[in-house]
């Protein structure tokens, strides 16, 4: 095979797979932009809307409080990010850089927590939230994911990889643990902090099962649960469902396109998350 044919073959394959990866999103966007007068079931299918309209995006906001769901998801995701970044970096630093009795026991708590899948404790978690009257609140949505054990271990690894000398020099200069953490250690693990923040955001924004279980009042729904509700309520109207899914996925795609390298890094650092 000549070099030229090889390149041609390679790019043909690349284009084909790109079409398979992105095509479904584009088809959904196309459906969302088709007006009520346009037949979305035509055979053969028409890929481009004849008269693109944003009407479905307005209409989906009228039939359901979609923008309220967006706001709920934003609050849940931001709270999850802040709690994970703060909780995981504090704990990771203590485990990697402070010496104390019980360090190993503390470390094993996080490893054990990592082995318990969320799906296996959701029933008990729901009972817990009920017993403290937090069920059907956004607080209950956030709490179980507030500090992921995996994130603690990621930060522990990042701090552990720093040269000891940095810490020891600061110690000799009389810096206490808090000062060493904020001024010496934290600034040099920004990359891992970004990975933790991005994956916490994505996890919270995309989560479905737990909010589905713990939320019951439609006013409290997050976007994913709201989308499922939308589907159940307006089973026939694919245009509205399409508009809703575009609203849900667009912010993440924007985030991904601007911060790609952290997404790729995160996959490898957290492969065990599955």
């Amino acid at each position: 095979m000549s070099r030229r044919t090889k390149t041609l073959l390679r790019y043909t394959l690349l284009l084909l797979i790109a079409a398979i990866s992105i095509g479904p999103f584009l088809w959904q966007l196309s459906t969302a932009l088709k007006g009520a007068g346009e037949n979305i079931y035509s055979v053969p299918p028409s890929f481009l809307p004849a008269e693109p309209t944003g009407g479905n995006f307005t209409r989906v906001g009228e039939v359901l409080p979609v923008w309220g769901y967006v706001w709920n998801s934003v609050r849940v995701a931001l709270a999850t990010v802040v709690l994970n970044v703060v909780g995981a970096s504090l704990a990771g630093y203590a485990l990697a850089r402070l010496r104390f009795r019980g360090r190993r026991a503390a470390l094993s708590v996080f490893v054990l927590a990592l082995l318990v899948p969320g799906e296996a404790v959701m029933v008990a978690l729901f009972l817990m939230m009920r017993s403290v009257n937090l069920h059907d609140t956004l607080v209950a949505v956030v709490l179980p994911g507030m500090v992921g054990a995996l994130n603690v271990l990621l930060m522990y690894n990042a701090f552990g990889a720093q040269p000891r000398e940095l810490d020891e020099a600061a110690m000799i200069d009389g810096a206490d643990a808090w000062q060493r953490f904020t001024r010496v250690a934290l600034p040099s693990v920004k990359g891992t902090v970004a990975v933790v923040a991005i994956f916490a955001f994505m996890g919270a924004w995309d989560d479905f099962l737990w909010p589905l279980i713990v939320l019951s009042d439609p006013a409290n729904y997050t976007l994913t649960v709201g989308l499922e509700y939308l589907r159940g309520t307006f089973v026939g109207d694919q245009r509205l469902i399409a508009a809703g899914t575009i609203i849900a996925v667009a912010p993440l795609i924007a985030l991904f396109f601007s911060l790609q390298r952290y997404f790729f890094r995160g996959v490898n650092e957290g492969a065990v998350k599955g």
Partner: peptide, 18 residues
């Protein structure tokens, strides 16, 4: 000090997993 650093994460792991 170390336990103050660990408190939030440890509380979360115990309360919401173990």
């Amino acid at each position: 000090t170390p336990w103050l650093f660990l408190a939030p994460a440890l509380a979360a792991a115990v309360a919401f997993s173990l």
